[in-house]
Design a protein around this nucleic acid. Sequence first.
DNA 1: AGCCAGGCTACCG
DNA 2: CGGTAGCATGGC
Length: 203
Amino acid sequence: MHTMASLSVLYKSLEKEHGKQGWWPVKGEYHLGDYSYPRDDKQRFEICVGAILTQNTTWKNVEKALEKLRREKLIDAKKMLGAEEEKLKSCIRPAGYFNQKARKLKEFSKFYLSLKNRKPCREELLSVWGIGRETADSILLYAYHEPVFVVDTYTRRLLIKEGLIFGKEDYDEIQELFRKGLKRDHALYNEFHALIVEWGKNN
DNA sequence: AGCCAGGCTACCG
DNA sequence: CGGTAGCATGGC
């Protein structure tokens, strides 16, 4: 199909318009053209926490929550799991849905510790309460450099606008389009998804 | 002053 | 099964 060409062309045009994005931001800093993050376990866990907090929420609000968590030294699986619930909720309040997200973070922390530094697979992530497909794929791509494409509402909107889908395709079908249409490269998936979000913010 | 944000779960028919 | 209410704060 010409989906292949279309997606490559789409990527290039987005990159030309918006430039490198340098995701995933760690400690509020972006790192253009450097895909060596996360560089340690602490950064990896921070990315996972951010992926959960940003569910249906703006990154700006997530940053406020992450800053509070940092101040309380809670960006650490063991400490987060042991943290008092009200303390955790008060930190993440700016990111919205704080009751649900506090539970999600606790459940994820427990899961993360059980990994003992092993890389999880998608199915395992999906079995954790509060981790759906987009969050699982964000974690795999941005925290573990697994080449899985992250599909969000903007992705669907963009592909409809470009005439590449009709709109009723589900998450996995859309992900399959990218898998078949692009080089299997985590850096490419990283930038592409980030660019789609950047596009989505003003569309 | 609504409406929407880098979704997910639970529940409904 | 597919569809959707509920979750919550902050910015425009």
